[in-house]
Simulated assay, not measured.
Amino acid sequence: MNLGRLALRFGCGLRGDPDLPVDSVASLAGGPRSVGFFANPALLPELRTTQLGAVVIDPKHAGECPVAALLHPNPHATFARIAALLHPPPPAVPGIHPTATVHPQAVLGRDVEVGPYVLVEKGARIGDRCRLAAHAIVGAGAVIGADTRLLERASVLAGCEVGARCIIHPGAVIGADGFGNARDGERWVKVPQLGRVVVGDDVEIGANTTVDRGALGDTVIGEGVRLDNQIQVGHNVVIGAHTAIAACTGIAGSTRIGRRCMIGGGTGIGGQLVIGDDIVIAGFGMVTRSLTAPGMYSNVLPAQEAHEWRRVVGRLRRLDALAARVRRLEASSGAQQEEDDEQH
């Protein structure tokens, strides 16, 4: 691959030798056969001394780049596409490993790889060129779209559907029972979880993330969604297309999240809420009411030195007493003002 071909393929302007060969991507500390990118002004010193073969960069910063430049107004996304081209995932190696268990009534497409100790149950349908890595599970009647990868110990359980070109990372579980329980006196009665999980095309679900099946209807993950590691998605949640959610977020049942949202790590979202389109929630947020207006939301105090934090907490504890004192002063002031008015 050379710079000229990259520029043509990804719609970049090119400053430099179009015949310069490149074969990898790297950070700004990389070598002369690698491509990097610059999008963070804090890395300007590293840019000025880089020895990369080329840098993907916004034209407004190109004057700071000492090497060849691929010019694009969105350098990060362009770099991601170049990285995917130069470092493609390993293709499926067609065949069924001798330790795998594939039910006779399961249907496998063309060029499917079924790795060691994989389980494919009755009625499952696996699309063309899928890769099922070691110990992956595809439950009865589940559907996996073409070119999807289930990595080690990923599970797509009975009746669930995963679209095309998805990546399900190790340990993820799609379609476990939702947390459905009905109270009967001091006891709990389990509510059967009869719905599915339906995952759209081009979705990536991180390691050890769990997406629970619906109680009656389905839990739905829209196309292009990105779920980081260790996220809990409750039953009947709907996540709109192209939303990205960072690690350790928990979403309670029946909440609907719109399209193109970004939700920071460690956020807790209550049940039966509506999060509109194009909403950004900062990390470690706690969402207890619906949010409908696009914009950024945050409700976490940043870390402070311990003695300063204790003073803040002390003041917070005195707020009720302070408010009562203000009300008494306002009432007294109002009464005094009435006396003054009567005297005049």
Results as ranks from 00 to 15, higher is better:
71 L>T: 12
85 L>Q: 01
80 A>M: 01
67 V>N: 09
57 I>G: 13
70 L>N: 14
69 A>P: 10
66 P>N: 12
73 P>C: 02
56 V>D: 03
85 L>Y: 02
71 L>A: 09
76 H>W: 04
73 P>I: 03
96 I>Q: 15
63 G>L: 02
72 H>Y: 01
78 T>S: 10
65 C>L: 08
79 F>M: 05
76 H>V: 01
62 A>R: 08
95 G>A: 07
81 R>C: 02
64 E>N: 09
65 C>R: 13
75 P>F: 03
69 A>Q: 05
93 V>S: 11
70 L>Y: 15
92 A>S: 14
96 I>P: 15
96 I>V: 15
85 L>P: 06
87 H>I: 07
67 V>E: 04
67 V>D: 05
69 A>G: 09
61 H>E: 12
93 V>M: 01
69 A>K: 06
87 H>A: 15
63 G>I: 04
73 P>H: 04
92 A>Q: 03
67 V>Y: 04
78 T>P: 13
88 P>H: 10
58 D>E: 10
62 A>M: 06
57 I>L: 08
61 H>S: 13
82 I>G: 13
60 K>F: 02
64 E>I: 01
81 R>W: 07
65 C>S: 12
60 K>D: 10
95 G>M: 03
93 V>T: 09
95 G>K: 00
79 F>H: 07
63 G>Y: 04
66 P>E: 11
72 H>W: 08
94 P>Q: 14
70 L>R: 11
65 C>P: 12
72 H>L: 06
76 H>F: 12
82 I>N: 11
81 R>V: 05
74 N>I: 04
76 H>D: 06
93 V>E: 14
84 A>C: 11
56 V>C: 05
74 N>D: 15
71 L>W: 14
73 P>E: 00
74 N>M: 05
56 V>I: 15
57 I>P: 09
66 P>M: 11
63 G>C: 09
59 P>C: 01
79 F>D: 05
85 L>F: 02
86 L>S: 07
66 P>G: 14
88 P>Q: 09
90 P>Q: 10
90 P>T: 04
92 A>Y: 02
82 I>F: 08
67 V>M: 03
91 P>N: 05
86 L>N: 12
90 P>E: 13
69 A>C: 07
91 P>M: 06
56 V>H: 10
78 T>N: 10
63 G>P: 06
91 P>E: 08
61 H>V: 00
81 R>T: 05
75 P>I: 03
64 E>P: 07
71 L>E: 06
90 P>C: 02
63 G>S: 13
71 L>N: 13
59 P>G: 06
70 L>P: 15
90 P>W: 05
79 F>G: 06
72 H>F: 03
96 I>Y: 13
63 G>D: 15
63 G>N: 09
67 V>L: 06
